[in-house]
């Protein structure tokens, strides 16, 4: 399991992506965001993201925290959250 929900006081919780996030993780991630759209996503520890996972983020646009640990995503793909969209595009 590389998608984990961390419950923290005073927040809606953080969805943490860790290590290799495969195609199966996309559904888990989508369900967690659907349950509570206020949850933020922390992708700093994700080292390899499957297309399906990125698609889920692109579709559901949660607030994403940190720099993506997957260097390809960090370098080439815009972070999906509305506030930062386009910020790192070259």
């Amino acid at each position: 399991m590389t998608v984990t929900l961390l419950a923290e006081d005073g927040t809606n919780g953080t969805i943490r992506l860790e290590g290799t996030c495969s195609v199966e993780d996309a559904d888990t991630l989508a369900s967690l965001i659907f349950e509570d759209a206020g949850r933020t996503v922390d992708w700093a520890a994700c080292t390899r993201m499957h297309t399906a996972v990125y698609q889920a983020l692109l579709r559901l646009r949660p607030v994403v925290r940190g720099t993506c640990g997957d260097t390809f995503v960090d370098r080439w793909l815009p972070p999906p959250s509305p506030e930062k969209r386009g910020a790192t595009q070259t």
Binding site: V23, D27, L29, A30, F34, R59
Partner: peptide
């Protein structure tokens, strides 16, 4: 909103 198939690629 509310309809999302994580396993269908729409990219």
């Amino acid at each position: 909103d509310g309809e999302f198939d994580a396993y269908a690629c729409n990219l």
